[in-house]
Amino acid sequence: MSPRPAGTTPRRSGTSSRTSTSPPSDSAARTPATGEHIDENDLYPDVRPALATLQQKGLWVGLAGNQTAKAGSLLRKLDLPVDAIATSAEWGVAKPDPAFFRHVIELAGVAPNELLYVGDHCDNDVVAGHAAGLWTALIRRGPWGLCGRTPRRFWRTPTGSSTP
C-alpha cells in the first residue's frame, strides 16, 4: 500500500470488485477447497491504474462486496493499490442488507455522506447504498452492470443535501 502524499487530506471512496466466473488458465493456481480463482487476468485493464490514480490524489480507496472470505484473501494477494479489502462473508452480512453498508462506513472511518460506494448492481449497490446514506455510483460493466436497470434517482444526494 502506498503512503499518502505529504500535505494531502484523505477523502473516502469505495468500490466493488470484479471477479471472473470463467475457468482459470492452465498456468493459474486454483484454490482446491472452493475452486475460487482470482488473478491479474480477472481485472479490467483500467482497474489497477484507476485505483492507483485515486490513491495518488490522496483518496482513501476500499474494496467491499458480496464475496467469500477466500475471494477476499485472493484479492489481497493481488496487492492492489487500495487501503482495505473486505467481503460479505468476512462480515457475516451481504448486500443489500443495511448492516453491510454500516460495515463499509466503519471501515472507511467517515460519515456516510462523505463516502462514495461504486457498484455494478443497481439494487444491491446503488439503491441499497443510497438508502444507507452513502453517495453511490453505478458502473455499467460486468454481468450485473450491463443487464441491470439504471436507478431513477441516480443523481440525488443521499440526504437531500446539495451536491459537493
Rank of each mutant, 00 (worst) to 15 (best):
G142L: 01
T15H: 10
A69W: 13
R76L: 05
D83H: 11
H103P: 12
A108F: 09
G119R: 15
P23E: 02
A84R: 04
A84E: 01
R30C: 15
N113Y: 07
P3F: 00
G62D: 10
S88W: 14
R141N: 06
S25L: 05
L80V: 10
V127C: 11
R18N: 15
P3T: 12
S73C: 13
R152I: 08
S16K: 08
I105N: 09
T163K: 08
S16I: 06
L146T: 03
A52S: 13
G14D: 03
P96Y: 01
L134P: 04
V118C: 04
V126D: 13
G62S: 12
R102Q: 12
S162I: 05
P164T: 06
V82P: 00
G7E: 01
A86V: 11
S73Q: 13
G142E: 02
P5C: 14
I105K: 09
G129W: 04
E106F: 11
P5L: 15
A52R: 10
D123T: 13
R153N: 11
L63K: 06
A99S: 02
D79Q: 09
S161K: 09
G7H: 01
L115A: 09
G148M: 12
P45Q: 09
T19M: 10
S88N: 15
P23Q: 00
G7V: 01
V126P: 15
N124L: 05
P5N: 15
P96F: 00
A33E: 14
S17H: 06
T87P: 14
I38H: 07
L74K: 01
M1F: 01
L134N: 07
A52Q: 13
P112G: 09
T150A: 06
S16A: 07
V104P: 15
A28E: 08
F100C: 15
G14H: 03
V127G: 14
R18V: 11
K77S: 14
E114T: 06
D120M: 06
P164D: 04
S2C: 11
D97A: 05
P143E: 14
T68L: 03
T136S: 09
G160T: 06
G119P: 15
S162D: 07
V82H: 01
L75F: 04
G14N: 04
P143Q: 12
G145Y: 02
P96Q: 01
P10M: 12
V93C: 09
F100D: 12
L74T: 03
W91V: 08
K95Q: 05
S27F: 02
P96W: 00
P49L: 08
T8R: 04
A33K: 12
P158W: 00
F101E: 03
A71N: 07
F154G: 07
V93L: 14
N113H: 09
D39R: 00
A69Y: 11
P45K: 10
S13K: 13
D39H: 00
N66L: 01
A128Y: 13
W91F: 08
